[in-house]
Design a protein around this nucleic acid. Structure first.
Length: 163
DNA sequence: GCCAACGTTGGC
DNA sequence: GCCAACGTTGGC
């Protein structure tokens, strides 16, 4: 008997383009980057406990001139310890984290294609996306789950010109 | 640069 | 286990 394949899930992952832009990720070997620097428990738990290889990812640029969704990606590894937590020179260094008991976990993310920028104002103006987690007021999570119906709708909109 | 809204921490 | 204070995120 074969185990049932877990259903594909979908995520939105924020990156500051000054740190790692979608172009940076595309330029990396295999268009794949380790999602370093997450230092919040909720976002970490999504990566550690819920993500599966092949899950769909919306690559989102935050803290920049034009925030929005700029690419389609996928989860490309199982969770593993974020190496930057042990790197004294890294801004993400965490002196309290131990090698034998790492506090911060990440996954690799592979960009499948760059898209147009589906901007935050466009997302907010779309009634079908009214309850998209990342649009909730004051949302601060760098990783949020995306409902399959939102995923399908956003993919459609990414292939249409800006309204 | 401002500041609302939040996630996290830590005192109790 | 509560919850006030703190520091950070992130859009504007």
């Amino acid at each position: 008997m074969t185990a049932a394949k877990p259903a594909q899930q979908f995520w939105l992952m924020k990156s500051e383009p000054d740190e790692v832009s979608v172009d940076d990720a595309l330029a990396a070997p295999k268009s794949t980057v380790p999602w370093t620097g997450v230092r919040g428990y909720q976002a970490r738990n999504f990566m550690r406990d819920q993500m599966r290889v092949g899950d769909g990812v919306l690559f989102y640029h935050s803290s920049c001139a034009e925030p929005g969704i700029v690419g389609i990606a996928e989860v490309a590894s199982a969770p593993y310890p974020d190496p930057t937590q042990f790197d004294r020179k890294s801004p993400y260094y965490d002196a309290a984290s131990k090698q034998e008991e790492p506090r911060w976990t990440l996954v690799d993310v592979k960009v499948l294609r760059k898209t147009r920028n589906l901007t935050l104002p466009e997302l907010r103006a779309d009634p079908e996306l009214a309850d998209l987690a990342v649009l909730r007021r004051g949302n601060r999570l760098s990783i949020t789950p995306v409902d399959p119906k939102h995923w399908r709708h956003i993919l459609k909109r990414l292939d249409q010109p800006a309204a």
